[in-house]
Design a protein around this nucleic acid. Structure first.
Length: 897
RNA sequence: GGGCGAAUAGCUCAGGGGUUGAGAGCGCCUGCCUUACAAGCAGGAAGUCGGGGGUUCGAAUCCCUCUUCGCCCACCA
């Protein structure tokens, strides 16, 4: 490779694409065919097929790629399996919106045409996100890309359904579920998210029906409810059996307000006496608890459904005619007014409570009685729970384990049927023959009913998206067929995801893994934080606070994005980014990539030929700085490796950063220049060591910043044809650890720093060299000087360093870390008279400012009227300036002005 | 209602198994286009480590408590 065309500024846009292509061409991402290497497997959390890359994906996939690249360099057979999720509701919604713009509803097209339309849409735009992942450097094995609706994958989904059904773990249930009246489908508990809402608690009078055991003096019973519009579905009122207030009403009857419907008054221990009036209306078809209460009260009784699927008041006898067809919110408003008018509303008080919302469209979910398919979860949860408790499944950070455990402990059955068209259609066939209610459940359509041979019709519902995702770790590898991939790559190792889908996905994958593969699908679950803006709001496109990763890649490069994301994610914490200031958000990463580029440029241009390997050199030829950088390099290796192994990716990033910038660029490169330029001998050793430590740095940083490191590697003489991506991860060479060298070079740094401080303080021009005198007591500093005379002279711009000497004349002391000092006489380096004058002028200026502020602070008008923080700021200013005056006066004294 | 987490420099955050002068990046101030890099170099200012209490020779760190923020779970309608 030529070494002459590296531009002074790193321009990622010119190299990233080519590098990625090279990795693809070389087949770097596919696990090696030879089966004797230990595998390392991560399955990607499949993004929604319609998704567009956002910062959350950026974070999630960068982390996975870092782990993947590390293990690949360690020589394991690495598989990072990519793919997408069909995302039932989300995708169907997208396409429904699309055809809505053509004035059509999905019903207009019909099921088959609609599903075809979705496929067309997915074919066009689907999977775009996978290409976007390439832009951030994701090293997935694209040849194994999967989609949850692929034929093979679908076979697995249906197989699982059939097996679980026949094992009695899937059943059909008639109960109150969460229903989204906008998406027109049932939802699981997890898909119906609680959100606080400010509503009202209405106290409604139910008129008492005379006769029975009812006390004649009472006219009505008051019930508190947040949902008055559901009262037409009431079947009873209940109070707590121990509630003396209502004892006389037991067995009595009331009329549902505005109707002629009579219902009884009964008791139920489920009633909370202190809530509302202690009297509860039982609406079994529109409230899960009420359904349970009614099941005890009257197992065979009616469960009137009084809301339509799209949440309008139903056209049924129980609902007053003037309310029928009204949408639920309008119905409530109207109803409340009518109740008020008829003196049937005692009061309405403001009430804040948590209401479930559809996680896809945010519509308030309607509890609704219907027939759905459920998975019996307790038996599946048991092994998943045990795996965690026995330490076979580990969470990072650990605390999520408790959350996982708690959820599994109180797990409820999973509603898996969705009234959608986009998804895996449930492989169940109902018999249409009279009197036969047999269900045929099998993978392929039966010729007829298994029981009576009659005609059958297939269930129209599809399965919950998560019912396919939970099989991801093995269905992607060909299950239920006994494939080679399954043998080799199951179980996997690390799962990297956000805590938000711990229940949706992670826990269920563990359950499926145990049930169908008898092993957990991974051993470690690494849960990273959420990307948020500076106000800690979750980033999202709809909230307008998102950052487009592709824009970042475009402007600053993938490595800048990756570095920033990794450096910003300490374990268990969220990643905060400022969408309004991409420049400073990604500055650290961009600057570092540029730094790396420039050190590389310097090193590469000074290495015209392959160098001797560092461990082939004669240590007798090493200078102090050589021993020092080799030792620092060892520490960088162990620190980085250790950090990565503990999932402390931010520490790994910091270790590489500081080694490259603080040690290599700031000190070693500067120290070594005379040798490289031939002004002093030893160039060969310097080159060899430069090459060694820089090559090591590139390897250490490669998982985090793959592009810039790969590019520089290709320019490093002697690096060979092998891409950096598959070179071996550095192993520490303990021979190179050298505490003595670190200690001694530390003194050199201190000495140089001390002199530089004096130079800066007194504005010694770069062209002028100074003299410095080390206080005689400080033998350590003298030793450092003796050992590294050339370095210190060069870096501190010392012309002469005296080893004895007191502190007479005009000059300044700089204190060394051990408490002793360096004295720099400044008479020969600056015009003392001029500096004295400058200092005097500055003191005068500061004093003037100080006087002004002091006067201000003495002025009561100001101190009383100005905002406290303004006054405080002024006070601080005064303090700072007062100190500054002291400092300047000290300087004048030092110079003997 | 229960549980969890966070509060450290102007901003975004590390650290914290008790013991030396509390760190980084960005920002800020001063001086520098020093032949790798101005996306840079050198130097510098800046924090009573949220309030209060306790344990200790010693606490930013451990314990208690309060305040404020965030998250998760939850069938008081």
């Amino acid at each position: 490779m030529t070494t002459t065309q590296l531009s002074p500024q790193y321009d990622p846009s010119t190299i990233e694409r080519a590098i990625y292509q090279r990795w693809l061409d070389l087949g770097v991402f596919a696990p090696p065919a030879d089966g004797d290497r230990e595998p390392y497997v991560i399955v990607i959390p499949p993004p929604n097929v319609t998704a567009v890359l956002h910062m959350g994906h950026g974070l999630n996939n960068t982390i996975q790629d870092v782990l993947i690249r590390l293990e690949r360099m360690r020589g394991r057979a690495v598989l990072w399996l990519p793919g997408t999720d069909h995302a039932g509701i989300a995708t169907q919604n997208v396409v429904e919106r699309l055809i809505a713009s053509e004035g059509k509803r999905r019903q207009d097209l019909g099921r088959d045409a609609f599903v075809e339309r979705v496929w067309a849409y997915v074919g066009e735009t689907g999977g775009r996100i996978l290409d976007q992942l390439k832009a951030i450097g994701a090293s997935c094995d694209w040849s194994r890309t999967r989609f949850t609706l692929d034929d093979e994958y679908s076979d697995a989904v249906l197989e699982v359904f059939v097996r679980l059904y026949h094992e009695g773990l899937i059943y059909r249930g008639h109960r109150v579920i969460h229903w989204c009246p906008r998406c027109l489908t049932a939802l699981s508990d997890e898909e119906a998210e609680f959100r606080e809402r400010d509503e009202s608690l209405y106290y409604i009078r139910y008129p008492i029906v005379r006769g029975g055991g009812t006390h004649a003096a009472d006219e009505h019973v008051v019930v508190a409810t947040t949902r008055p519009e559901t009262m037409f579905g009431d079947v009873a009122l209940v109070f707590h059996p121990d509630d003396a207030r209502y004892r006389r009403h037991r067995g009595g009857r009331v009329r549902i307000p505005l109707t002629a419907v009579e219902i009884g008054i009964d008791v139920s221990p489920a009633v909370e006496r202190d809530f509302g009036t202690g009297m509860l209306k039982v609406t079994p078809a529109h409230d899960a608890n009420d359904f349970d209460i009614a099941a005890v009260l009257d197992p065979k009784g009616e469960r009137p459904v009084i809301l339509t699927e799209d949440a309008r008041m139903a056209d049924v006898e129980r609902v007053p005619a003037d309310l029928r067809g009204l949408e639920r919110d309008g119905a409530r408003t109207y109803l409340v007014e009518r109740l008020r008018a008829e003196q049937l509303l005692e009061k309405a008080e403001p009430y804040r409570h948590a209401v479930r919302h559809c996680y896809r469209c945010d519509t308030v979910v309607e509890p609704r009685l219907s027939d759905q398919w459920f998975v019996r979860m307790a038996p599946l949860a048991a092994p998943a729970l045990e795996a965690y408790r026995r330490g076979r499944l580990r969470f990072v950070p650990e605390r999520w384990g408790k959350v996982y455990e708690q959820w599994l402990t109180q797990i409820r059955d999973w509603n898996i049927s969705r009234q959608l068209w986009w998804g895996h259609r449930i492989p169940a066939w109902f018999c249409e023959a009279d009197g036969c209610d047999h269900l045929t459940v099998q993978r392929d359509a039966p010729a007829g009913c298994q029981a009576c041979g009659g005609r059958v019709r297939q269930e129209t519902d599809v399965l919950d998206t998560w019912f396919s995702s939970w099989l991801w770790p093995f269905a992607t590898m060909g299950w239920p067929r006994p494939t080679a991939d399954l043998r080799r790559f199951y179980p996997g190792h690390t799962l990297v995801t956000a805590p938000e889908i711990l229940f949706f996905w992670v826990a269920r994958m563990v359950m499926a893994g145990y049930h169908f593969m008898h092993q957990a699908p991974f051993e470690t679950v690494f849960l990273h934080g959420t990307v948020r803006d500076t106000q800690h709001r979750k980033m999202s496109k709809s909230a307008g606070n998102g950052i487009d990763p592709l824009e970042v890649v475009d402007r600053y490069g993938a490595d800048a994005l990756r570095y920033t994301v990794v450096a910003g994610s300490a374990i268990g914490t969220d990643v905060i980014m400022d969408p309004n200031d991409l420049e400073s958000t990604f500055a650290a990463g961009r600057n570092f990539a540029n730094k790396l580029w420039n050190v590389g440029r310097f090193i590469v241009t000074n290495l015209d030929a392959p160098t001797t390997p560092a461990d082939g050199l004669d240590p007798a030829q090493f200078e102090l700085a050589d021993r020092w950088i080799l030792s620092r390099c060892q520490r960088a290796i162990t620190d980085t490796t250790d950090a990565l192994d503990r999932f402390r990716l931010n520490d790994a990033a910091a270790a590489g950063y500081h080694f490259v910038w603080d040690d290599l660029a700031d000190w070693y490169v500067e120290q070594v220049k005379p040798r490289l330029y031939g002004t002093v001998p030893g160039g060969e050793v310097a080159r060899a060591i430069l090459s060694h430590v820089f090559g090591t740095a590139l390897r250490l940083l490669h998982p985090i910043m793959p592009f810039v490191t790969e590019e520089l590697w290709s320019h490093l003489p002697g690096a060979g044809a092998e891409p950096l991506a598959t070179t071996a991860w550095p192993v520490p060479q303990t021979d190179f650890l050298d505490e003595e060298a670190e200690d001694r070079f530390g003194r050199v740094q201190a000495l140089v720093g001390a002199v530089r401080a004096v130079r800066a303080e007194y504005r010694v021009p770069p062209s002028r060299a100074v003299t410095a005198r080390v206080q005689p007591a400080n033998t350590a500093a003298l030793e450092a000087f003796n050992a590294e005379q050339r370095t210190i002279e060069r870096l501190a711009k010392i012309g002469k360093l005296a080893m004895d000497g007191g502190g007479g004349g005009g000059g300044a002391h700089a204190v060394l870390p051990d408490g002793s000092s360096v004295f720099v006489p400044l008479g020969d380096a600056i015009d003392v008279r001029q500096e004295c004058a400058r200092l005097a002028a500055e003191i005068e200026r500061v004093e003037r400012q100080l006087a002004a502020v002091d006067a201000k602070l003495r002025n009561d008008q100001f101190t009383n009227r100005a905002p406290a923080e303004v006054v405080e700021r002024e006070r601080q200013k005064a303090g700072t300036w007062r100190e500054q005056c002291e400092t300047l006066a000290d300087k004048r004294r030092a110079l003997g002005c």
